[in-house]
């Protein structure tokens, strides 16, 4: 696979990251380095901590031990660091989480206007540009409740892109979609990958992983069990747990 889109600089670094929910150890000694432009797919059984891990990267969850560094900024309790990181890291959720009281356009303009202090006109222009990229500029004045799930998820992607992030996190972006809508969302994500965005994607869409991932990471019980390029990962899995997992999802 062509690796030329990957730069040398390390954009995300996790060192011995641990997290507990009360007594439950959700993340165990996670070590991970992501270089600029790299596309990573994270998979694993439900409850394996994969969502929790990427939610730690923009501090929707806090970790208790270890270090997370994003673009050189350590992610700690310093609110200024968290704010700086969130400006550069976009996130797309399983349930879209669009703001139902705002139109599609306002959803996209909100953060650029208030966080980046862009004038309304500029924010609107950016929003329309990205709505065109996700192929729904004609829905700009509708409310999220009037759109289909696939359209809503594409709006959510556009909304994140409006902040011009360097990194995009996807937390099971197609899991809540009807089957016929998965493709339209994946297509947008593939395009995004082609443009050189650093992406971390929690998903069970193995076709997507084969197509765009530079690396596939398999997690189970809070640990990274195995990581490899998609070719090796799917054809030649090393651990028993990976083999079991793959046999289960590929059977479906």
């Amino acid at each position: 696979m062509n690796q030329s889109h990957i730069k040398d600089e390390i954009e995300i670094e996790l060192k011995n990251v641990n997290k507990w929910y009360d007594d439950f150890h959700v993340l165990r000694d996670i070590n991970l380095q992501v270089r600029k432009g790299e596309r990573i797919v994270i998979c694993g059984p439900s409850g394996s901590g994969k969502s929790t891990m990427i939610r730690c990267l923009n501090r929707l969850e806090s970790h208790q031990k270890g270090d997370i560094t994003i673009e050189g900024t350590p992610l700690n309790n310093d609110v200024r660091n968290i704010d700086a990181i969130r400006k550069d890291v976009g996130m797309v959720f399983q349930h879209f989480n669009l703001f139902p009281h705002l139109t599609v356009l306002d959803n996209c303009c909100l953060a650029p206007q208030w966080v980046k202090k862009q004038p309304r006109k500029e924010a609107e222009a950016t929003a329309m540009k990205f709505l065109e990229r996700v192929k729904i500029p004609d829905q700009a004045l509708k409310y999220p409740g009037q759109l289909s799930g696939g359209q809503q998820q594409r709006v959510a992607i556009a909304r994140s892109l409006c902040m011009n992030p360097n990194i995009m996190l996807f937390d099971e972006p197609t899991s809540a979609l009807d089957p016929e809508m998965i493709k339209e969302v994946l297509d947008v994500m593939v395009e995004l990958a082609d443009e050189g965005m650093t992406m971390l994607c929690v998903t069970h869409e193995m076709g997507f992983a084969k197509k765009v991932a530079d690396r596939v990471i398999f997690m189970d019980a809070g640990e990274i069990i195995e990581e490899n390029n998609p070719h090796e990962f799917f054809d030649n899995p090393q651990s028993e747990r990976t083999k079991l997992f793959l046999s289960q999802i590929l059977h479906n």
């Binding site: 929707l60 969130r86 966080v115 909304r159």
Partner: peptide, 11 residues
């Protein structure tokens, strides 16, 4: 999710 989306956008 509404709180999280707002947080993730940096508000």
């Amino acid at each position: 999710g509404q709180y999280e989306a707002a947080d993730a956008l940096g508000l």
